[in-house]
Nucleic acid binder design. Sequence first.
DNA 1: GAAAATTTATGATTTACCTCAAATTTAGGT
DNA 2: ACCTAAATTTGAGGTAAATCATAAATTTTC
Lengths: 223, 223
Amino acid sequence: MIQQIQKDFAPWFDKLSEEQLAKIVENQVSLNYNKGEILSKQGGFASHIIFLSEGLIKIYKEHNDKNLILKIVKPGEFIGLSSLYNKGIFDYSAASIDSSKVYSIQAEIVKYLIRNNSDFAEKIIGQLNQNTSQYFERIMSLTQKQLHGRIADAILHLSREIYESDTFNMLLTRRDLADFCGMSTESAIRILKEFHNDRIVNIDGKNMHVISYQLLERLSEVG
Amino acid sequence: MIQQIQKDFAPWFDKLSEEQLAKIVENQVSLNYNKGEILSKQGGFASHIIFLSEGLIKIYKEHNDKNLILKIVKPGEFIGLSSLYNKGIFDYSAASIDSSKVYSIQAEIVKYLIRNNSDFAEKIIGQLNQNTSQYFERIMSLTQKQLHGRIADAILHLSREIYESDTFNMLLTRRDLADFCGMSTESAIRILKEFHNDRIVNIDGKNMHVISYQLLERLSEVG
DNA sequence: GAAAATTTATGATTTACCTCAAATTTAGGT
DNA sequence: ACCTAAATTTGAGGTAAATCATAAATTTTC
């Protein structure tokens, strides 16, 4: 068990002391979530930080029925860091889009580590800033590009950042994809079909195969 | 001079040692920018962190001629923090929208402070997370609301967060406002006029007076 | 394993917003 | 103070994308 934790967290704690490791082990619980289950609700207390060990999580905001998926989190990343030293409230919801395994760590422990392990603090800042860069990309995609460009961006993101393969089972429903691209479900479906017909990607249900990254990038570029 | 720096930075360095203060003073330059001047360009090396002492700065992204203003920075905030431990490249441009006074500090010094002053590290994480919350709000406004809601959000933000008054000279051009709301200049103008006619705000050129926060909030809510 | 619910799909209609165009006002430079 | 450039304003027309409606396919539930 301790070995598993050590392994999962390895990239985050180069210089973790015995004492610090013990603190983590003692103040953490391991949880499993099924597809569709909610890990945290927008507005809830952010007393814990979640570390995703296996699976896939969507981070989303709710607004008048409609959802917007802010980020798709893959294993090795923390969820809820942005609540640290902030309002102590989650400003987004998180739900599992695949069966997932997580460690839930008390926020106080993460703060303790930040204070007592500058290496960890630097890495946390690094992840926060990487997320911010990603959010900037998303803002540009969502606000400056039209439907084709947005879907192209989403497929590129899924292929390169999330699944790291040109062929993947995307798990996201059409509705999720639409929520990720800030468009109606019908539009998402229509454009996926167009991309399929134009031989840019090959789509069979949720299975997706990227045929031409070049065309996707072109679409992303022109918006 | 040192006293001015100490005063400007006071909220960031509760527990700043003599040595640390000296390091800042030695590795900083004070700069003045006129309205319209560019402080940093998207894609440039992020070797410095900027601290805004006086004035107002817009942070924006360029994409196919059009700009999107990500954030308006007011005195007391850092610019460029999101490049730390990241790519070392600014992923946005910054320009002065009023005559501004800034300190430009070497990024290495800021990193040194993060490593050696956990109090400072925590405050930096706090600011980064506050920014992130703000970006989430912006993403929701820009992607889920229509023009009226977005302009309402912008006015509320300017009034409450930036100028902290119901009456202010907004400095932003109509085009800036449109770039902040992700819409065409014409649309921004039309909606400002509507708000004026409907006695929600009183607008005379760049002078703005909020008449009804309630109506603005209603517009923000319904989108 | 049938029923219910959700997801996917496609076509027709509506609309919010952009683009274009042209006039007027304001700001900047010498 | 004048000239030029930039910003603001208003109207008309076009269109990208949402919404609505309805059906088929898939998944979930008991």
